[in-house]
């Protein structure tokens, strides 16, 4: 399980640390559009890494 500790922009310009696991989480779904889009980015990046290995 790989994880990312990216900072997630949650409201306006405020950035808060938010864990984005590759497999996603209910917390990210609950964050709404921002959480879903960031999760997809991490998921996509992870699949690229896997393919190139």
């Amino acid at each position: 399980m790989s994880e990312s500790n990216k900072k997630l922009k949650t409201t306006g310009d405020t950035e808060i640390p938010y864990e984005i696991p590759v497999e996603g989480s209910l917390g990210l779904l609950a964050l709404g559009a921002v959480g879903i889009m960031e999760w997809r980015k991490v998921r996509g990046a992870n699949s690229v890494v896997k393919k190139t290995k």
């Binding site: 409201t11 306006g12 779904l29 964050l31 709404g32 559009a33 921002v34």
Partner: peptide
């Protein structure tokens, strides 16, 4: 059901933001 619920939340939060 979970995906549908998350979808509504996704659109709603985007509008609010």
């Amino acid at each position: 059901i979970l995906a549908e619920t998350a979808t509504i939340n996704s659109a709603g939060t985007w509008i609010l933001e």
